[in-house]
Nucleic acid binder design. Sequence first.
DNA 1: AGTCTTGCTGCAAACGATTACAATATTTTT
DNA 2: AAAAATATTGTAATCGTTTGCAGCAAGACT
Lengths: 331, 331
Amino acid sequence: MPSIKDVADIAGVSTATVSRVLADKPHVRPQVRERVLAAVESLNYRPNLVARSLRVQKSNKIGLIVADIQNPFFTSVSRAVEDLAYQHELSVFLCNTDENPEKEDIYLDLMQDENVAGVIIAPTRQTASAFTEAIKLDLPMVIIDRRLPGVGIDSVLIDNVDASYRLTEHLIADGHRRIAAMFGMDSVTGSQRYQGYAQALKDHDLQPSSDLVIHVNAREEEGYQAAKQLLNRTQPPDAILTSNGLLSVGAFRALHESKVAIPDEIGFASFDETGWTTLVDPPITIIEQPTYEIGQAATELLLKRIETPARPAREIILKANLVVRNSCARH
Amino acid sequence: MPSIKDVADIAGVSTATVSRVLADKPHVRPQVRERVLAAVESLNYRPNLVARSLRVQKSNKIGLIVADIQNPFFTSVSRAVEDLAYQHELSVFLCNTDENPEKEDIYLDLMQDENVAGVIIAPTRQTASAFTEAIKLDLPMVIIDRRLPGVGIDSVLIDNVDASYRLTEHLIADGHRRIAAMFGMDSVTGSQRYQGYAQALKDHDLQPSSDLVIHVNAREEEGYQAAKQLLNRTQPPDAILTSNGLLSVGAFRALHESKVAIPDEIGFASFDETGWTTLVDPPITIIEQPTYEIGQAATELLLKRIETPARPAREIILKANLVVRNSCARH
DNA sequence: AGTCTTGCTGCAAACGATTACAATATTTTT
DNA sequence: AAAAATATTGTAATCGTTTGCAGCAAGACT
């Protein structure tokens, strides 16, 4: 691998001049610039990013730390972040915490050690206090997907209360009354979605009965079990709402297996567009999160933060989309 | 951020000694080691990876370059690579080429500029000659998913001919005769799968008729259109085989929309376990690729290559799994 | 006691860029 | 034509590590 020194030698100038040419700085004769460029060409020289990063104490990388890379929500967000980063000539370092706080710490440290310009993160921690370690790193940072109350950090979130409210209201409008719902445990997102659900019921003079509300870990198997259990009750619910893509798969599988008719015997509505919702019978009514927009907004926010580290933190809240299909309205 | 110099000052030693302690090298008095460790602790010192990487001319990062991060096949592979890397204290730099050779080049260069220890890549190029740019970088490298004939590079692949043969044979065994099939265009993978399909037909005294074989780009929309077109023929096929997850979604959507009964009116079988295949009616018979094993094997191969750059290249070929469900056998 | 190991530690030179600053050359101004 | 301003280029320090080499102390051997 040729270094800047080699280029300088061939062009018959100093490394400083080469550096200036490459950085498009003024104060270099056109003739000399030519020579340098020719030398660069002939050697197929590429500047060493590690050395540059060491010298200028920053880099053109950003980190993207997500909780689960197999979750379509995150891959779609990643896609957006990647696209924007590419446009700005940044590269992205994608990490997967697996919802594991320990891994999260390791990756956060790594980001700092790698001199990244900034980080976009979907934190596994649910409270600001548990996240202080990360905050004090003072890296440009933006949080996505999970609200961390009280930390003064740029965030891009969706309006979970609203989304859940509308989904619930939709079920109510279709005549469902005993609406069971599953929410992710120990997550702000989950509790916000519960809130919207409960509010919608109240606003329509329905009592949120505690035996219809289920809090579980957001895993397919748990969604399956919970749905099974609901169906086996002496008085099963009119409808089931699931607040997360993984729970949805599990719940749907249970309904499907039990051969209960959707929507005539039981209504079904859920969160997240996951690719299968239009293929099954009936197509599922869902809340679609604007994943690409989330990634975009997060990247833009991060770029601004990098540019102006002192600017006041901003919280961007996007509305989700209710996509009505045929899993709610009885015939 | 404290540097090794700060640690050295506090511990009252030279930076060389600190470095030796941190690298667990011999020749340092236990007492001194103690002092250094204490200083490290008190300052919360973390070595600067960029500086280290510059000095030793390598790093603990590996690159993973995939074609489409939204494809479950690749996310699953990534997951495996990540797990193994994590165990070996490596971090992974995940890049998305979007099947774009230009992006591929950029990322490949970036990998080199970042001093990564090695790269795992699913090349977008279909021929070795188009890939020479990459090869001459002489980075430790392993290729996954797509066979690049004639390059002497470690690869882990699945036996596409065999997989496709078995899937076709399965359809034949279930009584289908006029079996249409869609293959990805311009890809070795696609043509291997075609090969297996054609061979299976021949071995069962069936003629592979050219009007039943469709070569398209591996996109959902093209699968949809192709399937529509097949169904609208005066003499539609007995069965459809799709050789790729995206084509499958499209084709299935078309079948579903046309309300043609699977498998009684038409058989359906496809590649890739994509999450929806068991949720639809009927569940789809598929070839399941051992994605996790692919990622594992690739990482192991890469680690060995890094350790012994001169070892002979190896090609690991994994068999895929035929998962029989209810989309082929007529009642 | 003198010489040889051996163990411990520090000095200083890398790694490959960027960038103050100084030095020189060129142009403009008076 | 001299002085001042400006443009061009080079020198050398710097970023934070690692590591070859040398120095020195202490113990082992003759």
